[in-house]
Amino acid sequence: MMKKGFKDIYTGLVLFAASLLMFFYVIPHHIKAYTVYGLPPSFFPKVITVALGVFSFILIISGLRQGGKEAFSLEAIKEHFRSIDGRPARNVLMIFGIAILYYIGLATIGFIISTPIIIFLLGIAFRWKRYVILILISGLTTTVLYLIFGVVLGSPLP
């Protein structure tokens, strides 16, 4: 059985590493030093990054306290991955993949063609079995959205 603190420890570690990276690399390289008018632009991001570092450190400590000390053993990590059910993760990735496909579709073939296809794909991915209804809904949604955004609101849909 997975220990309660496991997730917290690793979340904390990742965020702590991220805050170090921000503080020592990203902020100095991507925010210009400037001091003519009051505090420099890098001041506020630095303060937040330090705060993030501190909070993630606290998270690691509290994770360890909750009996997650074994989290660092190889066995515990293996155990953790074994305990994850692959099915939900695959589902989420599939839906997210379709979402990215929609972005690509909007950027290339445009709204009118990609929207019904994506609704159809999502419907299938969600295991909706009545295809006729699905096709009707895809067409209807596209038309309605086109009317709302394209015609009433005058947005230049791609």
Binding site: A99, Y102, Y103, A107, L122, G123, I133, F149, S155, P156
Partner: peptide
């Protein structure tokens, strides 16, 4: 199943309409 599919598309298109920009999607 249908509602989520439709809402997803609405969200994407709505985000686009904020600035008329695909970056928002």
């Amino acid at each position: 199943e249908l509602l989520y599919s439709v809402i997803f598309v609405m969200c994407a298109v709505g985000a686009f309409a904020v600035d008329n920009s695909l970056f928002n999607v």
